[in-house]
Nucleic acid binder design. Structure first.
Ligand code: MN
Ligand code: MN
Ligand code: MN
Ligand code: MN
Lengths: 217, 217
DNA sequence: TTTAATTTTTAGATAAGTCTAAAAATAAGA
DNA sequence: TCTTATTTTTAGACTTATCTAAAAATTAAA
């Protein structure tokens, strides 16, 4: 059995791996987990001893098959619990992440599978992130954001790239929730802010905000 | 915030307190938690520093108001999660305890309250144990067991005093589940075993088994 | 290709929770 | 009451995960 800490390291490495082809750097893991590089080095050695990561000094780290399996199953847990909290316990999408950070570490295949069934096998979590299936396959969205659309184009909100409470609350306040249909009315060249239509209402949105909203055309 | 370990000590002391009027002994806590007396002494000192227990060397330990509040809220969590697992995720009553041991430590008042509401405010967990209310009141069953009944008397199963998997599985195999109606056909004086009727079937049950089954006449 | 900046690793310390073995206090028995 | 037996506490050691400060390796710049 792994400690919560070890599991969180695996999850962090998994997350960072998706953005990097080669090994994940010590510093990036430290930043992701709000810890120090020296702590990361120590933990990497331990995970390496347990054959959960491949590691060569100064060369970065990557997950082994086994390590990736564990990481994905934790992500699966995390996202299923988020769905549960929103769908069944009436939480808002900006309230569920921290609780899911704890719940994800409860390791029971039966629990996960029964929860999955109870939720009727959801494909996405409340933030639009894909839920890995039982075999560990994850089908990510294409990385197309609102900021990529041109004047006159339409799109549907399918996810967010930024998960902070404040961003999520802001989006909800202007009805930019999952499934919302958007039309680009205008783009201000100076700062790339946009005027868009959602729900027959017109709102303005900064580039900072639009580039974190994942869209399907 | 408390660690899981600290919470488990509080819970253990709470459990043992209900069977003792004066302070709980170091050894009994050690046994309850499968640890050593020396470890218990160390932890008690820590909990005492945090004003969660009252402690005088060699005189046993008892919970403060604050300590008891925490302990009860953990018990509340534990039992609500057990209800969830059985009612919503189709677990059997012998499968839920260990998972609840983990889930109970997820501290969120909102989560607990929403879960309580989702489950429609259950009064008892799957083993018949009472679920403390939001204010920390617990209404325990009277301690009347099947073994206390006389020949010819009837009773209804309302709980168990022993929570081992094997006992729970055994009970289920002979239909001695919560709510089952029992009639005592005969008592063997030699070993206090009983012949009883459940669901129109007759079964024999040892004293060891009957004295752990809580009954309401 | 040296030198300088950055990144990563090591060395040594600290805190939590545990253990064994031994000492101290309490309880039980003669 | 005095002597054992039992219980509880203390002393000292170990493990895990963390940190700071310093050394080593790599990368970037001149
Ligand atoms: Mn999340
Ligand atoms: Mn999410
Ligand atoms: Mn239980
Ligand atoms: Mn129970």
């Amino acid at each position: 059995m792994l400690t919560f800490t070890e599991e969180n390291y695996l999850k962090a490495i998994f997350k960072l791996s998706s953005k990097k082809i080669d090994g994940v750097s010590t510093n990036s893991i430290a930043e992701e987990l709000s810890t120090k590089a020296s702590s990361v080095t120590d933990m990497i050695k331990k995970l390496s001893d347990k054959k959960l990561v491949k590691y060569k000094k100064y060369q970065g780290v990557s997950l082994t098959k086994k390590g990736k399996q564990i990481a994905v199953s934790i992500v699966r847990n995390h996202r299923l619990w988020e769905v549960f909290l929103v769908e069944k316990l009436n939480f808002k999408w900006d309230e569920v992440h921290d609780l899911a950070e704890d719940l994800e570490h409860i390791n029971s295949e039966k629990l996960t599978d029964q929860l999955d069934a109870f939720l009727e096998f959801p494909k996405y979590d409340p933030h639009g992130d894909p839920i890995p299936d039982k075999d560990g396959n994850v089908y990510n969205h294409k990385d197309e954001t609102l900021a990529d659309l041109q004047k006159g184009e339409k799109g549907i909100v399918v996810g967010v790239k930024e998960h902070s409470k404040s961003y999520l609350k802001y989006l909800e306040s202007i009805n930019l929730v999952l499934g919302a249909e958007i039309k680009i009315n205008d783009i201000v060249e100076f700062d790339n802010s946009m005027s868009i239509s959602v729900n027959k209402k017109t709102v303005n949105i900064s580039h900072q905000a639009s580039k974190n909203l994942i869209i399907k055309k």
